[in-house]
Write a protein that binds this DNA or RNA. Sequence first.
RNA 1: GCCGGGUUGGCGGAAUCGGUAGACGCGGCGCUCUCAAAAAGCGUUGCCCACAAGGCGUGCGGGUUCGAGUCCCGCACCCGGCACCA
Length: 841
Amino acid sequence: MTEQIQDETHQASDGPSYDAHALQEKWQPVWEELDQFRAGEREVRPGQPAPKRYALTMFPYPSGDLHMGHAEVMALHDVIARYWWHRGYDVLNPMGWDSFGLPAENAAIRNDEHPATYTYGNIDTQYQSFKKYGVSFDWSRRLHTSDPEYYRWTQWLFLKFREHGLAYRKNSPVNWCPNDQTVLANEQVLADGTCERCGAVVTKKELTQWYFKITDYAQRLLDGLDGLERHWPERVIHSQRNWIGRSEGAHVDFDLHLASGETRRVTVFTTRPDTLYGATFMVVAADAALAGEVVAPERAEALASYLEEVRKASDIDRLATDRPKTGVDLGITATNPVTGEQIPVWASDYVLADYGTGAIMAVPAHDQRDLDFAKAMGLPVRRVIDVPGADNPEETYVATTADGAYVNSPALEGVSGKAEGIATIIAKLEADGRGTGTVNFRLRDWLLSRQRFWGAPIPVIHCEKCGEVAVPEDQLPVRLPDNVRGADLKPKGVSPLAAVADWVNVDCPSCGGPAQRDSDTMDTFVDSSWYFLRYCSPDYTDGPFDVAAVREWGPVDQYVGGLEHAVLHLLYSRFFTYVLHDLGMLDFEEPFTRLLGQGVVINQGKKMSKSLGNGVSLGEQIDRYGVDAVRLTLVFASPPEDNIDWADVSPSGSVRFLQRAWRLSGDVTSEPGVSFAEGDVALRRITHKTVHEVEQLMEAYRFNVVVARTMELVNATRKAVDGGCGPADPAVREAVEAVAILLSLVAPYTAEEMWERLGHEPSVARAGWPSVDPALLVEDAVTAVVQIAGKVKARLEVPPSISEAELETLALADPAVVRAIDGREVRKVVVRVPKLVNIVV
RNA sequence: GCCGGGUUGGCGGAAUCGGUAGACGCGGCGCUCUCAAAAAGCGUUGCCCACAAGGCGUGCGGGUUCGAGUCCCGCACCCGGCACCA
């Protein structure tokens, strides 16, 4: 299968040949010299800065070299950035590395070296590849999150958050990855209960950890999504809404009567307070502290053994929603606040300790889970809503949740509908001081501690006397020790930093006494939650970013990246931006105005993977076809948000097209600067129409169609050169120059070469955009279709200005139409000038 | 289970204010050049029908409309999010 490849980028026939690799060699150093994508220097005229645009693409993690996935994002992203340059914007298009993280640490352990070795080695490899790939990045703003100059400010931001009560430490059961030997945020545990990074089954562990109080922002993060509608992919907005999980309901107070004789008031959360009269028992989360505190002494042992059983069950078991309900009677009762009845209190694992209040009122008649539990435990079921057409849940084992007439509910007599019922009962509870209307969220606080080495150390010192002490600002960054080797980093359940004695043991900044550094590092998602701000002033030393610079560039106008981060990076960054806005450091709340989520590159219907042996190497593809052909293939293959199956596309077809476009640039015989106005009108119309259409396609991200239109322009120009107006016509030069500029969005090397062959100085990237003459967008003839009952029977070439009557007459006279009417009566004629006539017979 | 998004030739995909379905490309077929092949170029290519004429066609079934890939109702299947979240 290699035999066809060798010559694919070479043309053996006479004349100069198109050699993609030679073009890369030729132009890379020239571009390096030109350094033409520096942000912040463009002016419309002296003294007047050009309008600014911020184009951002997700920075890579430096594992190995760039792969097909990177190639796709960069290709798509670069289409936008280069288009903006052409349209006259001053474009900020930075690149850097998300360079803290586990793979470097694991590699360090394997090779017994420092994680920095792997990290910076790969960064260098990727940097070279980026250069070759020809993306219009402003390399002067390059950053790495693992540089002390960067993580100093990650630490600074952590302390700011802490200062404002948004970072705190608590002890609770956390997600624990037994493979990576570290805790994970909820967002990093996949729906099937496995670790987002390594796929191991996540377990629970009780630990004291740092959290960001993202829940304080739940409502605002939710509300902000409304404004992103139509600018962000539906999928991401939807995922975030689901993840935040707002539900409206009520807090209702129940008095628990403990064995000791005390009364303890416990609040439950419910979305259906209107079913309160049907609450025939209460359930508390078995693993919540409350269960142990209220259990009757004679039931304590039963609870303890149940709890043990629950803890043994793996997360996989817990995830099976249809498994039978289990639980234990706590031996006490509670008072239903509206009926005054004494109802039993149970503990079960179907109630979650960390959602709502960790305790629920059970209404078996109208909640399936409660009904299942009631049936399993023989607890009473009382119907309080009579749903028309539905049988008694107690007999059918099917809880009813639909609207109906309230029964057995004195306070809801005559009330109709769920909404009114809920409002009525909340009003009553509030009046009685037994509850309030409330809102609850599924979102949990962001657990940010990690028991790993290669991350930003948490800048806190633990002093026996003073407790938690923030590292003073002038002592930042808290640097990672560089005297560790791979062997020191082996996971042992606590951070490897804890074992580095001369690093951990410090004097307390407050009292000067002996103290220890916090040995955990931060989740790497903290690093990436603010990197886009740092790019605005990458060398700033008085803060994480220069507020004025961010005011100039922010927010990001266009973000391009994968959507596997829908509830991770894309949610965390929004949270950071809201907080920094509230701290007065930003004048916007949403970080990314427009988001494009590109699909992934797969092969033969499956994700590329080593085990499947279906991996496609970017480097190999570039060696075979050249950078431009690979980029073109990726952009042309499908709409940007769809997946690309490499088996379905044809990089060699891309090479063919690039050759044909390139060849045109050698056919032009007119001089640069020739007056296009004197050119062939037919070709000029096509050129102007194409450019105009591309402008609209660009706005709508339809890059694959942009390529198709460029191909059509090449085809039309070829025809004009060979069989139409001929190569000397100014319209041919106009068309080929337009092709070069359009092509520069996707295939910069070929476009650059064409530009030079057309007699221009480099670079085509800064050549500006062809101006569109509206007069040339007007057609001189259009094809009108004649339909009978909606089926096309004839086509007519008519002037665009034709009148309805004329068009109708022409249509009815057409022989094919006459034949199709076949003497039948014409009942109605619909005319839409100048394109359509529909005849009803 | 709840909530989103989708289904167009052999393939990737065009056509999103209801108005020529299949742009552009891949693949296929035929031809030119060549001793031959490759490369390149030209032509052709939704399906049925030998051609023409004609008919059928955008997952399936209905509907609205002069006219539906596009709007409405029902269904099937695929992808994604949440999932014992009270």
